[in-house]
Design a protein around this nucleic acid. Structure first.
Lengths: 216, 216
DNA sequence: CGGAATAACGAACAATCGCTTGCTGGACCT
DNA sequence: AGGTCCAGCAAGCGATTGTTCGTTATTCCG
């Protein structure tokens, strides 16, 4: 209760709404906080938000449960920071992939590949939130939706740039594509012979074949 | 392990439980147990498995928490029964839709429409389990996966019956389709102007267009 | 050297969790 | 009338949850 924001002590420069640049994760400068998020991310990706207790996280990082509250004021805040960081990572990934290609179809395909690769690499943490587990729960919903929307906007633009025949509902097309991609972590098998990239390209190939560039 | 574990007792006589019964809620034959599953399903679909406590369910159905354990030996068993019943419902729905059409493409499309309609109707309970929230948790995993696989087999057969050009990976195609469909409840808006059927058909249209029946 | 700031320990808190048990009113059958 | 079983109440158990708080070590800084 309290809701008292007293506690004003902030460990590091957490303030600032701007996207702080976070470089490679192996940097020594990134103190404990990021490693904490790493472990928490792994756990939550594997066992879910509710399935991961603060004690689990503390144990995974070699701390006592109470010590976590020095870095994050609550479990919710921890998850929020985690989600935030992951969205940033994904976005950076997609942006990097969009550097080279110029053709609208190639650009969207590159983004899709980066997206799936990111999903697999981050342990499917993004998909955890999506179906509405946390969405319908607390006030986290708002921020999560906002970050998610911000990320999806990239894809909105990419789809908008596509040369499609008139009458095609680009929204449904985008959500169709997104759903198929986001579902991949559910069935992906590292030893299945198919890489995330191959899967993404196969999925994308259907769209390409459905709306061929041929004029006629 | 007794999978069925008996328990098949039907309460039968539910007549005149109390005088305040006014509206024919559902089928008269199914008494308390099914209503219990209904309410539990709504709650879990909205707040997740962990987010829904036995006390929540008891309150929703007008009982005391301990009384639930007369009907189900555990929360896990309750969820299992719920999941089981829902898979049956979905399968019946798909089977009914497959009654009429004969063309492979039409058949798969009908199944997809029934699938999405079922997802929306059941409050997206199926999608809850999918991403791996419960999968990686307990021994429920086994049974859930089995039921899920049984249901998906329908789609496996439908995809197998499709006249596709050689070299197309039918597994990825099926999972692509399934992912897109299962993702629909995430973004479906009842007042959005599109019915579940329309959405399913739009998604399916992409596949149809990608592999046209023309023999070229 | 001395005082902040950092980062954690150690122990507990109230609340909630799934679940168990003993019991009882009433419907049904004979 | 008596017996049986359904269906639920009432109360509490042990465990776990997120969280708080006072207290320390260690480091930085002038």
């Amino acid at each position: 209760m309290g809701s008292g924001d007293g506690q004003g002590v902030k460990p590091v420069g957490d303030r600032g709404r701007d996207g702080s640049e976070q470089a490679a994760d192996s940097a020594p400068g990134q103190s404990r906080r990021d490693e904490l998020l790493d472990r928490a991310g792994e756990l939550m990706a594997a066992k879910g938000y509710d399935g991961t207790s603060m004690r689990d996280i503390a144990r995974a990082v070699g701390m006592l449960p109470g010590s976590l509250y020095y870095h994050f004021p609550s479990k919710e805040a921890l998850f929020l920071a985690l989600h935030d960081r992951m969205v940033d990572t994904m976005q950076a990934r997609v942006d990097a992939a969009l550097d080279a290609p110029t053709d609208p179809w190639d650009r969207l395909e590159a983004a899709c590949v980066a997206h799936v690769e990111g999903l697999i690499a981050t342990g499917n943490l993004l998909a955890i939130v999506s179906p509405g587990f946390l969405d319908e729960r607390d006030a986290i919903s708002a921020r999560i939706r906002a970050e998610r929307s911000r990320y999806e906007q990239r894809f909105r633009h990419l789809v908008a740039a596509l040369p499609l025949p008139a009458g095609v509902d680009r929204r449904v097309l985008r959500l169709h594509l997104f759903g198929a991609l986001n579902w991949v972590p559910t069935w992906f098998d590292p030893g299945g012979g198919l890489t995330p990239e191959q899967i993404a390209r196969q999925i994308f190939a259907v769209f390409r074949a459905a709306y061929p560039p041929a004029q006629g």
